[in-house]
Design a protein around this nucleic acid. Structure first.
Length: 296
DNA sequence: CACCACCCCTGGACGC
DNA sequence: TGCGTCCAGGGGTGGT
């Protein structure tokens, strides 16, 4: 579930705890959740056969002895960056968490912890991920991070509506569904299943509408609602449906503002019609048949 | 090239 | 209470 708002809320919660701190010890408890420089690129392919040969992991590869600067984010990815320019990109996947524990404190829950960083004030930062859809990518320098993030579309929080609209309009010849495009991180970075449905509802656009049938006007309206929905969710600390919590373990409250996600069969808050659900782009999708008319 | 079905994984919900 | 089954979904891979 962590989409852009959850990752941004997490990032902000970590800033005061780790910025300027030095890693005194780093431990990788599960080697297969990390991708090292030199590993066959492709990220999640590490989980498939043939298994990449396990590499000897040195603590230094997890930024031991290095000082953190402020963590940065692009889309749903957060990067722990050091003064020297090395970075660890953390992808939370479905159930990934970064949790911080004060000196002498415990991280709870303490299971499924795959990596631990002990900081110079005695506090700890851990990466836990029960489902292991997430992972860590170790990057040698800032340019490697930039190259990785160059593959992402405009960030749904920091880009303006015009940039997001332009990204959608670049595909105006495609019959691809608008929802599929919003979920594509190369088109817009940071939107996942929840906020795609929420944005399309607010824009009054059916999720199966092809990009070719959108037109500049509606593309621009969608871009604006994506920004609005994401911005509001960040202000609410993200959505906590089950697993999400920030670095301090605090949940978000943006789920209270959801108008369609998780509400199939319930009445539309705007028109009272019964919300419908189905599969669009392999994802459970909820929409209002009254407010979001079917494309022709 | 564009798009889609499938797969990775665990835990919670639900039915019997 | 316990067990089985289904489902959640980000995103890479391979097939069409």
């Amino acid at each position: 579930m962590p989409e852009l708002p959850e990752v941004e809320a997490l990032r902000r919660s970590l800033v005061p705890h780790i910025t300027g701190r030095t890693v005194v010890r780093a431990t990788l408890h599960r080697r297969d959740i990390a991708v090292m420089p030199g590993d066959p690129e492709g990220g999640f392919s590490r989980q498939r056969s043939p298994k990449p040969r396990p590499k000897r992991m040195r603590a230094a590869d997890l930024l031991a002895e290095q000082a953190f600067v402020e963590p940065v984010r692009r889309g749903k990815q957060i990067a722990l960056v050091t003064k020297a320019g090395q970075a660890i990109v953390v992808h939370l996947g479905m159930t990934g968490q970064l949790r911080w524990a004060a000196p002498g404190g415990r991280v709870t829950p303490g299971d499924h912890v795959h990596a631990t960083w002990r900081l110079d004030d005695g506090s700890r930062l851990v990466f836990r991920d029960p489902r292991r859809f997430g992972g860590l990518w170790l990057l040698p320098d800032r340019s490697a991070l930039d190259a990785r993030w160059a593959e992402l579309g405009p960030d749904a929080l920091t880009a303006n509506a015009g940039q997001i609209a332009a990204a959608l309009c670049a595909w105006s010849g495609s019959r691809r569904a608008i929802k599929a495009a919003l979920l594509d991180q190369g088109v817009v970075a940071g939107v996942g299943n929840i906020y795609a449905d929420e944005a399309l509802f607010r824009a009054g656009v059916h999720p199966e509408t092809p990009l070719s049938g959108l037109g500049g006007r509606r593309a621009r309206r969608i871009a604006q609602t994506v920004r609005d929905v994401i911005t509001a969710a960040v202000a609410a600390g993200g959505s906590t449906l089950r697993d999400y919590a920030d670095g301090d373990g605090n949940p978000g409250s943006a789920q209270r503002s959801h108008k369609v996600y998780g509400r199939a069969g319930e009445p539309c808050t705007a028109c009272g019609a019964t919300l419908e659900s189905g599969q669009v782009a392999q994802r459970t999708t909820v929409w209002c048949p009254g407010c979001q008319p079917e494309p022709i």
